[in-house]
Write a protein that binds this DNA or RNA. Structure first.
Lengths: 146, 146
DNA sequence: CTTGAAAAGAGCACGAC
DNA sequence: GTCGTGCTCTTTTCAAG
């Protein structure tokens, strides 16, 4: 991918609502040239979508945790992501190298909600869990330096 | 926060570029009412910003890892986040309960870049690191179910 | 990639509730 | 205080070169 596309991606990663007019100014291209490039980046999947960044404390989800999971039965088929996708409290699911098989990032409203979620995770995917509670997050969702 | 604001936040979390017109249709409000609510949500910090979601494989950052850090000198002042913020490869920094003090999520181009980054982290914050490499991510950045 | 025009949306003032 | 109307200006989209 070339220089101008990288610039566009970086700008939109930092401000997902930047207008095409501003993108054009920043890149020195015409508005419609920028427009075409953005559409192409979206179509190619370089830009997968746009999101508002939400303050989770303000929307009733003040408790974040990382949940590492390990299958109870190592011989069973590993379809944990499909079994967990319906749980909306799980923000992300990463397959990882190491002792455990996946790391999940979850958002809940209270310790009680976390307890219930962990039970749901264990039941849905037949896994054991190890949970690391987030106390505070100095920074998060920083845009990539493309 | 009340029902309609929650809807607006959820809609924008799922599609950060949704127009005010569409938000108005979805919420049953007028365009200007939606407009005012969004501006208020932004001002109050409920909506912290907007971002394009980028495919990191496509922009030369195919390697993701979680790096847990622990101070070498437990008596030293804990200003790790401030010492690490300048490293653009660190996407997020969470203070956590448990054996280690912070969990970082990092994005780099190659194993060699990861090695260099870990050295920079250790040097900048005087910490030991434990790294868990991400092999694949079944899902990520899912919008909160506000 | 650019230009230029049409369509759609954003921003703002004002009045109604 | 919140919400809706109507106006203007900006942004987005599309077609042609």
């Amino acid at each position: 991918m070339e220089e101008i596309d990288r610039r566009i991606v970086a700008l939109l990663a930092a401000d997902g609502r930047m207008s095409f007019t501003d993108l054009a100014k920043e890149t020195g291209l015409s508005v419609s040239a920028v427009h075409q490039r953005v559409r192409r980046l979206e179509k190619r999947g370089v830009i997968k979508g746009y999101a508002a960044l939400v303050d989770f404390d303000e929307v009733g989800l003040p408790l974040t945790a990382f949940v590492s999971i390990k299958p109870i039965d190592p011989a069973a088929a590993d379809d944990a992501p499909d079994r967990l996708r319906h749980l909306a409290a799980i923000e992300s699911c990463h397959s990882v190298a190491g002792d455990e098989s996946y790391i999940l990032k979850v958002r809940v409203g209270s310790p009680l909600d976390l307890e219930e979620l962990l039970n749901q995770i264990r039941a849905a995917a037949n896994v054991s869990t190890r949970t690391t509670v987030v106390l505070s997050t100095p920074f998060d969702y920083r845009p990539p330096a493309v």
